[in-house]
Each structure stands twice: as structure tokens, then as C-alpha cells.
């Protein structure tokens, strides 16, 4: 095998060439190919995200259209339940409404007082509040009262009578004094 005899200046030149080669590789990968690859990978990732969004968006549109069809009954019912209670603070409209309701049932002098209010424990009803009311009927006869209570329960589906006290009037045993405690679910507005 022929021995390669290199002079000192030639070895220096080879070393210089190798250094140049290494420098070239460094510059190439660090400043040219690396950024290009990073940019391409980022674009690929972004495109993959967009395509996933596009494909899921079609499902979303279909789901919304199906839901809109299926929820027709629920939305109508929801609107009806919301319409049960007028705008404004319940303390402003509930007592007069109760007074008018019982007056129409031949039970005069009904007085409703707000006892308290609070949130409901169900998370679905976070937009609704429960109001506790005390309703006094100073004079009522049993049959009329029973009918009035039945009408009240039918007319106000979001109202629950939680306590009912009927006691006879000492001087008029044919009449009774009535104390109702009711809870009404009202949307927060």
C-alpha cells in the first residue's frame, strides 16, 4: 500500500478544509434546513388542527340542526314556563297577583309576604331562584278554600305549597283562617 506522504503545509490545508466543512454543515443545518423544517412542521401541525376542526365543524352543524329539531318541544315548554312570571322583582308583582287570584276565587283580603329566597341546588337551575312566601287568608270556608288551592296548584306549575294551616275562627266556626307557605321557582332576570 502506498504511503501518503503529506507535507506540513498540506496537512494544514487539509485541516483548514475540514474546518470549513464542519462550519458549512453547521451553517446549513442551523440557519437554513433547521428553520425550514421547523416552519414546515408548524404548518403541518396547524393544517392538521384546521382539518380536524373542519371535519368536527360539519358534525357540529349537523348536531345543531338535529338538536334544533328535537328541542322544539323543550324550547316551547321553556318559553311557556318563563312566560309564567313577568319581568321585574317578584316582590313587586307576586303579592298583588296572589291577592287578585284569591279574590277571583271569592277569598278576599289575601296577603302575601316574602319570607326569603335562595338558589336551587340543581346546577341546571342556576338561572332560577326559589322564593318562599307566606300567604294569609283571614277568612275562608273549607270548600271554597279547597277549590282555590286546587286552582292555584293548576294555574301555577312552578309553585309548591310547603305548609298549610287551617284553623277555625272562634267566633265564626263556619269560617276558617288559613296560613299558606309556598315556594315559587322564578327565573332570575
Amino acid at each position: 500500500m502506498k504511503k501518503l506522504n503529506l507535507r506540513k503545509d498540506q496537512i494544514q490545508k487539509i485541516g483548514l478544509s475540514l474546518m470549513g466543512f464542519v462550519f458549512l454543515l453547521y451553517v446549513y443545518f442551523s440557519f437554513f434546513l433547521g428553520p425550514l423544517n421547523r416552519s414546515r412542521n408548524a404548518t403541518l401541525q396547524a393544517m392538521s388542527d384546521r382539518q380536524a376542526k373542519l371535519s368536527s365543524s360539519k358534525d357540529d352543524l349537523t348536531r345543531a340542526a338535529t338538536l334544533e329539531r328535537d328541542a322544539k318541544n323543550a324550547t316551547t315548554r321553556y318559553a311557556a314556563l318563563r312566560a309564567l312570571n313577568p319581568e321585574g322583582a317578584p316582590i313587586a308583582w307576586f303579592p298583588p297577583r296572589v291577592k287578585v287570584f284569591f279574590a277571583n276565587e271569592q277569598l278576599d283580603k289575601a296577603v302575601a309576604r316574602l319570607e326569603g329566597s335562595g338558589s336551587l341546588k340543581q346546577s341546571e337551575l342556576s338561572g332560577w331562584a326559589k322564593y318562599q312566601w307566606a300567604i294569609d287568608l283571614p277568612q275562608a270556608d273549607y270548600a271554597t278554600l279547597g277549590k282555590a288551592i286546587a286552582d292555584l296548584e293548576n294555574a301555577e306549575p312552578l309553585l309548591t305549597i310547603t305548609r298549610l294551616t287551617i284553623s277555625t275562627l272562634p267566633d265564626q266556626p263556619q269560617y276558617q283562617q288559613v296560613d299558606l307557605r309556598v315556594a315559587n321557582v322564578i327565573q332570575k332576570k
Partner: peptide, 22 residues
């Protein structure tokens, strides 16, 4: 709509579970 459906369902349960005194 999902919120409305859930709320209506819970409200209906509330209405159905009421006790009628009449």
C-alpha cells in the same frame, strides 16, 4: 339548546314531584 333541554327536564321533574293539597 342543551341547556334549555336540561333546565326544562329539571323543571318538569320539579313540577311533577309537587304535592297537590287540593
Amino acid at each position: 339548546l342543551t341547556g334549555i333541554i336540561k333546565t326544562t327536564r329539571v323543571l318538569d321533574q320539579y313540577i311533577d314531584s309537587r304535592f297537590f293539597w287540593g
